[in-house]
């Protein structure tokens, strides 16, 4: 039971942290933030890895785990790269206009 209580505390505090973290965001960053947060939600790949690790040689579990890992990594790799592509445009702008002054 204590493990569950602990997990629920973690859930609660994580949620509160999430609410506080992005209180104020300029509209410019809404799309990149959504995309970045979306990449982070691919953290479920940890669950896929755990599933594969605990498969004990059961092939269906290995296949499901591997498939799920693939989906999650697609989310993670694609998400971070796409976010970086968007943000690169902003930062390139910054240095260029900064250099002009």
């Amino acid at each position: 039971m204590s493990a569950l209580t602990q997990a629920l505390w973690v859930l609660l505090l994580g949620s509160l942290l999430g609410l506080e973290l992005i209180g104020k965001v300029p509209p410019t960053l809404h799309t990149p933030l959504m995309s970045g947060a979306n990449a982070i939600s691919g953290i479920t790949m940890l669950a896929s890895l755990t599933l594969i690790g605990q498969a004990n040689g059961q092939v269906p579990l290995l296949v499901l785990g591997s498939l799920s890992l693939g989906f999650a990594l697609f989310n993670v790799v694609g998400g971070f790269l796409v976010t970086d592509r968007m943000l690169a445009m902003f930062s390139r702008k910054k240095t260029r206009s900064g250099g002009a002054r």
Binding site: V10, G14, S15, L17, N38, S41, T44
Partner: peptide
């Protein structure tokens, strides 16, 4: 934690 943070955000 990570899931909760993303969910709230």
């Amino acid at each position: 934690v990570a899931g909760a943070m993303v969910g709230a955000a």
